[in-house]
């Protein structure tokens, strides 16, 4: 009974306009080599199998998030417990129901809890790091462009620019999978951001004490050329789930058959 009560609003929200408009792209999945070690030996690449899934083509926009907080008052600024959202939560909005930047711009200053709640509201979830990394390895023509220095330079050029202004509207060039704005617009939450285990002091990555707890995933990147990816992991590692920053947004994922998140 209690479950039913909780489920109803979510289902209703899913049938609303926000859900219908959400454009999910099918990701075929397959073997993928992460920049982070996935096997028992930290220095050896162990490919993983990415199960097919669907990923939102675009990050969540201000307009979409506004619709969400209208329907879920508990996620409006000022009503969310600080346990779930820090003092920067939606700080750029001029009012609790009024985004500060363009409707089509990606929502930023959202906590992991808020992002997770949003995705659940449309029957989805946050992508895992591996799903996100797999989707973001592509460029317009190649499924894996990571060896291309130009691909890396494109990513780094965004990293190098301080975010003095609100991010521009979504709608960048789609990659080979049809996913847009994975690079060059905002950082994005992933579901397992706090399991990446990049230490705050990156020089302790080889600490055997850490290895005991965190497995090989704790050590460091396998390919030194992947430092652009490493920088993203460092950013995610610096966050707590209630944190929000002015250039951190999110997108949602769901299973291929659509019913399961």
């Amino acid at each position: 009974m209690r479950c039913g009560i909780l489920l109803w609003p979510a289902l209703l929200a899913c049938c609303g306009s926000a859900c219908a408009a959400a454009d999910y792209v099918v990701m075929p999945g397959g073997r993928f080599e992460s920049a982070l070690p996935q096997g028992p030996a930290g220095s050896v690449s162990t490919p993983v199998e990415i199960v097919p899934f669907r990923l939102r083509a675009e990050p969540i926009t201000n307009a979409e998030f506004l619709a969400f907080v209208r329907g879920h008052a508990e996620w409006q600024r000022g009503r969310t417990p600080t346990l779930f959202a820090d003092a920067r939560y939606l700080l750029d909005w001029t009012a609790p129901l009024q985004p500060g930047a363009a409707d089509a711009a990606p929502v930023v200053n959202v906590s992991w809890f808020a992002a997770k709640a949003y995705c659940e509201s449309e029957g989805a979830r946050l992508p895992t790091w591996l799903e996100w990394e797999y989707a973001a390895a592509a460029d317009e023509t190649r499924q894996d462009a990571r060896r291309d220095p130009q691909w890396r330079q494109h990513i780094l050029s965004w990293y190098a620019r301080p975010s003095t202004k609100a991010p521009a509207a979504v709608g960048g060039v789609a990659n080979r999978f049809g996913v847009q704005d994975l690079h060059g617009l905002v950082w994005e939450w992933v579901d397992d951001f706090n399991a990446l285990f990049i230490a705050g002091d990156s020089r302790t990555q080889g600490d055997p004490d850490l290895l005991k707890f965190c497995g090989a995933g704790a050590i460091s990147v396998i390919d030194r050329d992947s430092y652009a990816v490493l920088m993203r992991i460092a950013l995610l590692s610096s966050l707590a789930a209630a944190d929000s920053t002015g250039n951190l947004g999110f997108r949602c994922a769901r299973s291929v058959d659509g019913d399961l998140p």
């Binding site: 705050g200 002091d201 020089r203 302790t204 950013l235 610096s238 966050l239 929000s244």
Partner: peptide, 21 residues
């Protein structure tokens, strides 16, 4: 990491700070 600190990392792990924090 301050080299004048006595302690692991010279303060690095304790001061890992996200943007806007």
């Amino acid at each position: 990491d301050l080299h004048g600190v006595t302690g692991p990392g010279g303060g690095a792990a304790s001061s890992f700070t996200a943007p806007g924090h």
